[in-house]
Design a protein around this nucleic acid. Structure first.
Lengths: 112, 112
DNA sequence: CTTAAATATAACTATATGATTATATACTTG
DNA sequence: CAAGTATATAATCATATAGTTATATTTAAG
């Protein structure tokens, strides 16, 4: 827990950038696909339905932000989630949206 | 906790939009300022150092997203945090960044 | 060394949005 | 109703970035 609020300008910039990384549907799709474990780029392209170039760019964004890690094995490059807070963040947001939207969002709350 | 992953396209859109709302330093500054309790626009303008028009726009964005609530009292409009997950989200991100950045981020971890 | 496959990068376009300036709206007081 | 204050909105500009297409890089195999 941050001990001395308010955060200074640099800190706010970093926090907002972290949120921005998660503010794209395709990147969330990639993160989701990696919940089960590491996957190479081709698998992720197939899993997400994106183009190879676009997926590669998003993977780089996620990796640069420290969200994902990269492992190279021959021709293939495997990505994995390295920041353990990512699933927690997504879960928190899903829960919040589930409450806000109520039954319209059956994919969030699991409160059937 | 989401019971049936992966989230569909609409859900991903909503989650990413929620993250996007928090992906701006000025909006985080507003949220921070409201940690202590509700404040009117003038106070928030002063607290954040922004212009009145810009603050008003950001407050509208945050309110439309369900992050803030609005209460009108005469000439003044008071905003408050209504989504209890917001502080938790920020705390999670701060903690994560604190670990990643180490001592460079004395404003995150409070680990002095 | 050549070919092929997996991944990354560059160049470009389109779109979204943050900041600013000016103006409008809403409310209070006299 | 007139004047003043608090807040919101409109119009505009500048910038960031997601997606696409084409090409480059890396590695393995023959």
């Amino acid at each position: 827990m941050p001990s001395d609020l308010p955060l200074n300008d640099q800190a706010l910039e970093l926090v907002s950038r972290r949120f921005a990384v998660l503010a794209e549907p395709m990147r969330l799709r990639l993160v989701q696909a990696l919940y089960e474990g590491e996957q190479n780029v081709s698998s992720l392209v197939e899993a997400t339905g994106g183009t190879q170039a676009n997926i590669s760019r998003h993977l780089q964004t996620l990796t640069a932000a420290g969200v994902l890690g990269r492992r190279k094995d021959g021709l293939h490059v495997y990505y994995r989630i390295t920041d353990p807070t990512i699933p927690k963040l997504c879960t928190l947001v899903c829960g919040s949206l589930g409450k806000t939207l109520g039954q319209q969002a059956s994919h969030f709350g699991g409160n059937t």
